[in-house]
């Protein structure tokens, strides 16, 4: 145990660093662009401080995803992204949440559970659709057993496309979510400053 702590002290703070930087001379596979974590994170911290007194609590709601989007939400909490340092955290109860992160197309079987979770979230609240499935049903939108995304049942303020979106893209979307005027209205923070009660 002591050695582990020692090693992590030697490694220093990982937050904001790349886990596996591509060394010089190696060509990585073509892949989707992701934004700069730190730049977005700093902006995010400022906004969370200004609008939510430094603390934005979100509740995850799985509405029938393949668990890929879940995995990326979990990654946001790992030592490299460390979402909490921006003042954002994922909470266990909708009662404690300022908003919902919805993943999956909303399966018909889950519709009641989704509505009840939303009803249990105090108003005003932000609804963020994470992943193609939650945005518009994604690859399975034509199935009889699902809705075409979270907006079928909920007031979605922000959509984060991607299958799954990379952690950095989710961060960017969160920034947009609280920065965007319509979102502020939905979240009851229309005037800069304090959230309206």
């Amino acid at each position: 145990m002591w050695e582990m702590i020692q090693r992590s002290l030697q490694r220093g703070v990982l937050a904001g660093r790349e886990a596996t930087p591509v060394p010089a001379g190696i060509t990585p596979a073509p892949r989707a662009e992701s934004g700069e974590i730190e730049v977005m994170g700093d902006a995010l911290r400022v906004e969370v401080q200004r609008l939510f007194r430094g603390s934005l609590k979100l509740r995850h709601l799985d509405a029938g995803s393949c668990n890929g989007c879940e995995s990326e939400l979990q990654a946001l909490l790992n030592p490299f992204y460390d979402l909490q340092r921006f003042g954002i955290d994922i909470v266990a109860s909708p009662r404690h949440a300022d908003g919902l992160l919805v993943t999956g197309p909303v399966t018909r079987h889950l519709e009641e559970a989704v509505l009840r979770t939303d009803a249990a979230t105090p108003r005003p609240r932000l609804v963020i659709a994470v992943g193609d499935c939650a945005c518009d049903g994604g690859f399975c939108r034509d199935s009889f057993a699902v809705h075409k995304g979270a907006s079928a049942l909920l007031d979605v303020a922000v959509r984060v496309p991607g299958c799954p979106p990379r952690p950095a893209e989710i961060l960017r979307a969160l920034l947009m979510a609280i920065g965007h005027e319509s979102v502020r209205v939905a979240a009851g923070v229309s005037a800069p400053g304090m959230p309206t009660p």
Binding site: T20, P28, R31, N78
Partner: peptide, 23 residues
């Protein structure tokens, strides 16, 4: 737990760099 999540991210970024998708 944090140590293993660290390792997971390392492997997924490696996979991303080699194959172009984290999954």
């Amino acid at each position: 737990a944090a140590e293993m999540m660290r390792v997971k991210e390392i492997v997924q970024q490696l996979i991303d760099g080699l194959f172009g998708h984290r999954f």
